[in-house]
Design a protein around this nucleic acid. Structure first.
Lengths: 346, 346
DNA sequence: GTGAAAGCGCTAACAT
DNA sequence: ATGTTAGCGCTTTCAC
């Protein structure tokens, strides 16, 4: 049998001081004489003491834990839910975001609790989890518009921060990139390359982000002398991008430039171009969005509009943290600049 | 200001019973009269009571939380650590595994805490996290052999379960697939197709899994009349697979079949084949390993050796759970069968 | 079947 | 600068 883990009490006895003093040393509070500090530290070492998190959380009313929840529409079945989780995780976009979150949390010895909320029931569980004090707040990634979760959390007065603009009427802290500006950057680049018959593959148009990218792109193309841009809606997957491109090429065989609303679709677009005998960028230039892991690995390497996702994710975590600590009482909105990363595809 | 969350006490007062009775109802313990149960449930509803997890954990000595730790070698810098996290998450293999874990945990209202342990310091933190009782056990995914974490955890008597065989000398529960058998399946398929000059791209050979796949493949190929198989070591990435294939084709231009030790590398192999003017599967047949998300989406769709990863992950979670509950005292080892999934590439 | 009471291990006033 | 003390909200004997 494993013997009982040592408690503050044990350490105090060992060091010949009171529990309070040990607690002060453990929590790095000054007002403890250096020699006593040493004695305590030694006692901690000898006993192999590790503070009990539940006990601490009970009195501080802090779990020192945050939830990272991926919210979106998905199937109801268990299998579909697992597939949703797997698909989201595998998305290179998500990988960078989690990396950013981790970078912020790690120095604080915090680790995110991973939650998926694609059904009403799952959303309830997320709210319940937070209400139990299991986590102090939530970082929410919505994969579709009109996601009810942010509102649910806000109504329950639970700290949260969003990646992407919140639904109208819900005031919560969030970070976002200037999608419109990103679309403009793509248009400017294609125009500068001399593309005259440009098309675009958008994301799901119920997503404001997808709409804004399209809008910025169209507006800029109009300024460049192409007021009408063929548009095909995609689903942010490579296969969806390829299908959209095949459709576009069938309708407009002379297309010489394409803006895809994310890198995965841009990869699909390039594949479709190759399959129809077109060279990238000579016959058709391709620009993606995100600058996710797949962009640089593309064939050819993808010119894309970069979102500073790690930075955005870290900022989102900071906003949440401020809310939890009570440093911030009004929701903040931080919008980051998009940036064109020129590689070989356009 | 948010008003205090209701406690058991509040519910008890509201229902006109004692705290103990409310606790019994909340925890579904029988021996409570039906009418009292109803009264309590109503009081819970009215007060909006949610049990405090820290308080419960303090007395039950259970966090009802498990850690999902990705352990491996990586750089020391913060940026490299973030990149490690991002790379692992993005790996389609990992996506399926996490999906399997989630499927097991969700019905139990549990959510995994995501941890990365690629440095000695990070490993210490994982151990410390568990020792504090923040999580009841760990699911460990080692990305390289000789990972010290399993031993560290075992020595500290902390419940854990591994995906893949543990280091020699460390007895911990784990799940694995029969890699040797998987290699054999690939060899049999290539031989059955009539491939006579077969080569292979392995994973990092310090990984027992990679060694075993190679070993099973070579042994079977010898039986099929090709005792010497050109071998090139890869790194489980698509780019690495492509590079390895280019090398193989330069040395052995007449290669007519390739077994890649994972799907990502197989994708790279197919790309390299295409770039050198070879058609898959007509000029060169390609078989991958894993049947991860990218396999079916490959061009052409990839024939591959399937690991039942969701099932393996769920089993691993169950083994951990049994350890935590004390139902299991001796480590278990569950090995799953590999299965050939035939698509178009071979 | 229900209640009273004793902690779980810790922090934070408050004394000293 | 250190110790004393009173809980945090819950589960769990043990009486009744």
């Amino acid at each position: 049998m494993t013997r009982q883990a040592p408690t503050l009490e044990d350490v105090a006895r060992e060091a010949g001081v009171s529990r309070a003093t040990v607690s002060r040393v453990v929590n790095g509070i000054r007002n403890v004489a250096p020699d006593i500090q040493d004695a305590v530290r030694e006692a901690i070492e000898r006993t192999g003491y590790a503070p009990n998190r539940a006990a601490r959380a009970l009195v501080t009313r802090r779990a020192e834990t945050i939830a990272l929840v991926v919210s979106g529409a998905g199937g109801e079945s268990e299998q579909e839910q697992s597939a949703f989780a797997s698909r989201m995780l595998t998305d290179p976009f998500f990988g960078r975001v989690v990396g950013g979150v981790i970078t912020f949390l790690r120095p604080r010895s915090m680790y995110p609790v991973l939650m998926f909320a694609e059904t009403a029931e799952a959303r309830r569980q997320v709210v319940s989890y937070l209400r139990q004090g299991s986590a102090d707040g939530a970082l929410v990634f919505s994969t579709h518009a009109a996601d009810p979760l942010p509102t649910l959390l806000a109504d329950a007065d639970l700290p949260c921060a969003l990646f992407a603009r919140p639904p109208a009427g819900t005031a919560v802290s969030h970070v976002d990139v200037d999608h419109r500006e990103g679309g403009r950057l793509a248009a400017d680049r294609l125009a500068a390359r001399g593309c005259r018959r440009v098309a675009t593959v958008t994301g799901p148009l119920d997503l404001p982000a997808a709409r804004d990218r399209l809008d910025g792109f169209q507006t800029a193309m109009a300024r460049h002398g192409q007021p009408v841009v063929p548009v095909r809606e995609g689903d942010f997957t490579a296969a969806g991008g390829a299908a959209a491109m095949h459709w576009l090429l069938a309708e407009h065989p002379d297309t010489d430039g394409v803006f895809a609303a994310n890198d995965l679709m841009a990869i699909g677009v390039m594949e479709a171009a190759g399959e129809t005998g077109r060279r990238v960028p000579d016959d058709v230039a391709v620009i993606g969005f995100d600058d996710s892991g797949v962009a640089a690995a593309g064939r050819p390497p993808l010119t894309t509009v970069r979102q500073p996702m790690e930075e955005m994710a870290a900022t989102m975590a900071r906003l949440l943290q401020e809310q939890i600590e009570g440093t911030r009482t009004t929701p903040a909105s931080v919008v980051f600049d998009a940036e064109l990363v020129v590689r070989a595809s356009a």
